[in-house]
Design a protein around this nucleic acid. Sequence first.
RNA 1: GUCCCCGUAGCUCAACUGGAUAGAGCGUCUGGCUUCGAACCAGAAGGUUGCGAGUUCAAAUCUUGCCGGGGACGCCA
Length: 533
Amino acid sequence: MIKEIIKKNIKDAVGEEAEIFIPENEKFGHYSTNIALRLAKEKSKKPMEIAEEIINDLRLTTDNFFEKIEIASPGFINFWISEKTLQNELKEILKNKNNYGKYPQAKSYKLKAINLEFISANPTGPLTIGNGRGGFFGDVLANILKFTGNKITKEYYINDAKNSTQIRELGKTGLGLGETYLTPELKKTISTLKKKTARLKKKSPDNIAGEAGYLLASEINKQNKKFVEKVLKIKFDKWFSEESLYKSGVVKKILSDLKKKKLVYEKDGALWFKAKQFGDSEDRVLIRSTGEPTYILPDLAYHSDKFKKRKFSKAIDVWGADHHGYIPRLKAGLKSLGISEDRLKIVITQLVRLVKNGQEYKMSKRKGDYVTMEDLIKEVGLDAARFFFLMSAPDTHMNFDLDLAKERSMKNPVYYAQYAAVRCGSILQKSKIKMQKSKINFGLLNTDEDVSLMRILARFPEIVEEATENYNPQVLVRYSIDLARQFHNFYEKEHIIGERPELMSARLGLIKATKIIFEILFKLLGVSYPKKM
RNA sequence: GUCCCCGUAGCUCAACUGGAUAGAGCGUCUGGCUUCGAACCAGAAGGUUGCGAGUUCAAAUCUUGCCGGGGACGCCA
């Protein structure tokens, strides 16, 4: 609302985005803006004078939405929200229930059809912890974007191309020809496929490794899919096979398109793409001298399918940090196909470092000595794992202390938030019979604890907006911890049951609203809402 | 060698993208269950934001030079 008012009232502010923030110290208001400071140079006036002009305009248009608007040196404008406003917001929560905060206030916001691709683990083994981090991030991001009205397709890309190196290596292993690592899961799969692979040997001797690898991969992927859906509780809308791009001829089509546009040349027996022309640091190989395509070709085909065939207005890819150097290449490729690069957003999740006994826990796939996502969930549980991963921004290196997670799992913040939510539930249950259905007078909620709780509840839509616009799920996690803290605080100091009836029903309304917000939060985060703990 | 990310309390991380006295959790110390659930609350200690210079009303944040850590740069994915 402050943003809108400032935009409306200050024509000079065009081009200068009003920055609203919550000051650390409450003596500077509930909200504050530095707009006068930002404008000072441009208008060559003193910030304090500009601020003076602004609030004179503001006071005329805002009725008693604010309790107080003040100017502070060197030119901040500080706002105090009135209690009446907070009471109205409380009514909004109770009225809208689980739809509260669903659509952001900002008018500039547009709804989109978005393809969100994440996890996409190689079908050559079980999911790693890195896959899990990307998985939780993608899933929660999808929930948030859906909540704010976008049309989201959650997609999992399966790298199962018969002529790719990794699938052939996998096939060789299955046929007993190679020496790549074998996990127990893989061994099991192989034994069930022995007959099939034997038959293949006779049937198509050209690419036995590829054919066998493909069979193995689809078997492994079946296991991974089951794990993702049943254990991680992440449901995908589409499982997209790389091999299908070859079958349908899209890969060939992309190649011939590039050739037509003269963006391809031959060197050292290989076929190169002029990536440099589109902003990449050097040209890239499309087809190796051996005749096998590199991954960029099917990836271009895949993204062309997303944008051109399925007509998504935006695609978000969640990748592991090891793919970082691949971004300019893909974007260059998309540009060459006439697809604007800002339609593709790539989120990089940094690798997770495991710490055990205070030391980094080195993992070795070769020895089968590594921790899978399945192991981790078994140790700490799904709620704790989700919360833990979502707490830190995807692009920060994070340490996962196995001992800490295991021994002190009860100290994980997820329980702090859940406990607050459970307390809400149990008070409401206890007081059910005494609940008054007549008009509630929220004006009675005027202690510090009442007001602080109302204020944090009213911030919820802002948090949703921030999470949506910046693709930033972790603000929801932090908010839920803040909300829990505020509620525990309130709970400690204020009584509900046994107060005089008018105050009691007002407080019960406040608790009901808190419970609603917790319900929305937990649903968005994919965390359970326990009745008891 | 070229490029990217990071360095904040003993540990793990924040700081709303340049704002006012840098905040939480864990750990340490102190106090609070006869009262709606103590998986909770209140309080204390803990900092030259790796080091230096610059940019401006204002720098943890931007620029730059060092120091230290991680990663990417292939006809691997």
